[in-house]
Design a protein around this nucleic acid. Structure first.
Lengths: 235, 235
DNA sequence: GGTTGTCAAGTTGTAAGACAAGTTTACAAG
DNA sequence: CTTGTAAACTTGTCTTACAACTTGACAACC
């Protein structure tokens, strides 16, 4: 055995993974297609089955394939939440500061709300209103309140209709959630948030992008200040 | 053997990976610390060595550890480029449209250049000028020209001083590069870009954030139009 | 003919043992 | 104290084996 298919002798599994990834990414029409069995792949690449398994584990982690025991390996499209998970790890390892995240949030959402105001339909406005109404009935349940809050802002990104910006915003949620939760502890902050949301909804209904942008900027700037204060008092 | 440490019987390696990840992320001070050997881990979790190896492969893919043959496994901080790689895969698999990416770019860079104008030092301006000067001497070499172009914009993000926005912008580069390269094929586009860059540099030197924002928006909007035209003529 | 139950083949998940390749450590020689 | 070497340790790969699960075909039955 040990037939050499042009693969060097170090980091074998990495190289096999790279080859397979190239094959998969080269043609997006292959989604849901079945991969050859691990045995066949091992024979084809001239390596052992464990090496192929490691390569497939890497691809699985990258979201390019899914495996079912006894079923086989199938090509899939990566999940959008991967970016978010990546970001959370970066934050956990101290690579990103909370201030930067919040400032980035403001930049993103100001752009998003402008686009949302230009695109919003009556149905869109109704959904936002429903979320904001639900937030009014969460007295005490901070976790639920924060969840709905995030959902409100994520919904504006959906209305804006830009997938890229939606992914960016989503990638901040994991880091933002505890910060928003802390900011909500300040007296009046919860009601303030509701009011701002309502004003934003009204802007979207009128299609007033300029005003929506201004209100959102105020809303998030104040929210960031609240978080800073809450952080100080905790220490 | 087969001692049960509380881990179920399906997706063993996933569960081991999750446990190890929690241990690693729980304390950021453990960076560069050595993990127990695969044998010890296997014994500790009550699983076989291949299972531990798969778990470590997952962590390696997530950038949380590095392994050296004969040396051991060490905890590391994930690379910032991981987000970029993620995004490239999403784009490759057709999850993101090029239009969305370019619009997101404009949103990001408009915010970035404002912050950059407020922070820029004389040294920062000098570096930007150096990049732009280098771009003037790349006649014909489109690849080099695009590379410097991206570097110019990435440098503004560094000047802005927000790590989060810098990561976002960097994550677009892989998708943006071929688009910028296509746009540069139009007559006059290259010279136009240089002029816009120069105007932006001047704004930063004066600390004129409003003007910088306006010029950047013009620059990128025109660049996007050029790409759209170039794309049409190619087909 | 259509449906269903059963079985065999194929596939992934896990285990165990072995060796190769590289690193680290300890110790002895200088 | 330095240096060289050997032993122990660790990761990388291979092989074999079996368990768990899925798929597909085939036969029995309605």
């Amino acid at each position: 055995m040990n037939i050499d298919f042009g693969i060097g002798r170090s980091a074998l599994s990495e190289q096999v993974a790279q080859r397979l990834e190239k094959m998969i990414l080269s043609d997006a029409t292959q989604v849901s297609q079945k991969l050859p069995s691990e045995q066949v792949l091992a024979a084809g690449f001239g390596v052992s089955r464990p090496v192929v398994r490691e390569a497939l584990t890497i691809l699985k982690e990258r979201g390019l394939i899914t495996q079912r025991q006894g079923g086989g390996s199938y090509i899939t499209t990566p999940d959008l939440s991967q970016v978010s998970q990546c970001m959370n790890r970066l934050a956990m390892m101290g690579q990103i500061t909370s201030e930067d995240v919040y400032i980035a949030r403001i930049s993103l959402e100001v752009s998003i709300i402008r686009m949302a105001a230009e695109n919003a339909t009556a149905e869109d406005v109704r959904q936002l209103q429903a979320i904001n109404d639900a937030m009014k009935t969460t007295d005490g349940d901070v976790e639920r309140r924060v969840q709905l809050d995030m959902q409100f802002h994520q919904q504006t990104a959906q209305i804006a209709g830009n997938q890229m910006l939606a992914i960016f915003l989503d990638s901040l949620n994991g880091i933002l959630s505890p910060m928003v939760a802390a900011a909500l502890k300040l007296p009046g902050a919860a009601q303030d948030g509701l009011n701002y949301h309502q004003r934003i909804i009204d802007c979207l209904q009128r299609g007033d992008a300029d005003q929506a942008e201004e209100v959102m900027r105020q809303h998030l700037t104040l929210s960031m200040r609240n978080w800073e204060v809450a952080k100080e008092t905790e220490q």
